[in-house]
Computed example of a mutant assay.
Amino acid sequence: MTAARTLWQRVPTPVVDLVLAAVAAVDAWVGMWEHTGAGVALAAVGCVALAFRRRFPLLVFLLTLPIALTQDVAIAVLVALFTLAEGSRNRRLLAGCVALAAVASTAPLPLMDADRTMTLVVFVYGLATAAAPVLFGQLLQAHRDLARRLVEIEEAREHERALHAQAVLARERAQLAREMHDVVSHQVSLIAVQAGALQVAARDADAKEAARTIRSLSVTTLDELRTMVTLLRASGGNATELTPQPTLADLRKLVESSGTHAHLTGELPPTVGTPAQRALYRTVQEALTNVRKHAPGATARVELWQDGDHVGVTVTNTPPTRPSLSLPGSQQGLVGLRERADILRGTLNAGPTTEGGYRVRLRLPLSAD
Score class of each variant (00 low, 15 high):
residue 1 M to K: 08
residue 2 T to E: 13
residue 5 R to H: 10
residue 7 L to S: 11
residue 8 W to E: 09
residue 8 W to C: 05
residue 9 Q to N: 11
residue 11 V to F: 05
residue 12 P to H: 06
residue 17 D to F: 07
residue 17 D to W: 08
residue 26 V to R: 03
residue 27 D to R: 04
residue 29 W to M: 01
residue 30 V to N: 04
residue 31 G to P: 07
residue 34 E to G: 03
residue 35 H to G: 05
residue 46 G to L: 00
residue 52 F to C: 07
residue 55 R to C: 00
residue 55 R to E: 02
residue 56 F to S: 03
residue 61 F to Q: 05
residue 62 L to S: 01
residue 63 L to I: 04
residue 63 L to W: 02
residue 67 I to Y: 02
residue 72 D to S: 07
residue 78 L to K: 03
residue 91 R to N: 10
residue 97 C to T: 04
residue 98 V to M: 05
residue 102 A to R: 00
residue 104 A to R: 01
residue 109 L to H: 08
residue 111 L to V: 11
residue 116 R to F: 04
residue 117 T to L: 15
residue 120 L to V: 14
residue 121 V to R: 13
residue 123 F to W: 06
residue 130 A to F: 02
residue 131 A to S: 11
residue 132 A to S: 13
residue 132 A to I: 07
residue 134 V to Y: 02
residue 137 G to E: 11
residue 140 L to Q: 07
residue 149 R to C: 00
residue 155 E to H: 09
residue 155 E to C: 00
residue 156 A to T: 12
residue 159 H to L: 03
residue 163 L to I: 15
residue 163 L to Y: 11
residue 164 H to P: 04
residue 174 A to E: 13
residue 176 L to P: 08
residue 179 E to H: 14
residue 182 D to K: 06
residue 184 V to C: 02
residue 184 V to M: 13
residue 184 V to Y: 09
residue 188 V to Q: 05
residue 189 S to P: 02
residue 191 I to E: 13
residue 193 V to D: 15
residue 203 R to H: 07
residue 205 A to Q: 15
residue 207 A to K: 11
residue 210 A to L: 07
residue 210 A to G: 01
residue 212 R to N: 14
residue 215 R to Q: 14
residue 220 T to A: 09
residue 222 L to R: 03
residue 229 V to D: 03
residue 233 R to Y: 13
residue 236 G to F: 12
residue 238 N to D: 06
residue 239 A to I: 04
residue 245 Q to T: 01
residue 247 T to V: 05
residue 248 L to Y: 02
residue 248 L to V: 09
residue 261 H to L: 12
residue 261 H to P: 02
residue 264 L to G: 11
residue 264 L to N: 13
residue 267 E to V: 09
residue 270 P to R: 00
residue 273 G to N: 01
residue 273 G to A: 02
residue 284 V to W: 08
residue 285 Q to L: 01
residue 289 T to C: 07
residue 291 V to R: 05
residue 301 R to D: 15
residue 305 W to Q: 10
residue 308 G to V: 08
residue 310 H to A: 13
residue 311 V to T: 13
residue 313 V to D: 12
residue 326 S to A: 15
residue 338 R to S: 09
residue 340 R to C: 05
residue 344 L to V: 02
residue 354 T to L: 13
residue 355 E to F: 01
residue 355 E to N: 11
residue 357 G to M: 07
residue 360 V to Y: 11
residue 361 R to K: 10
residue 364 L to S: 14
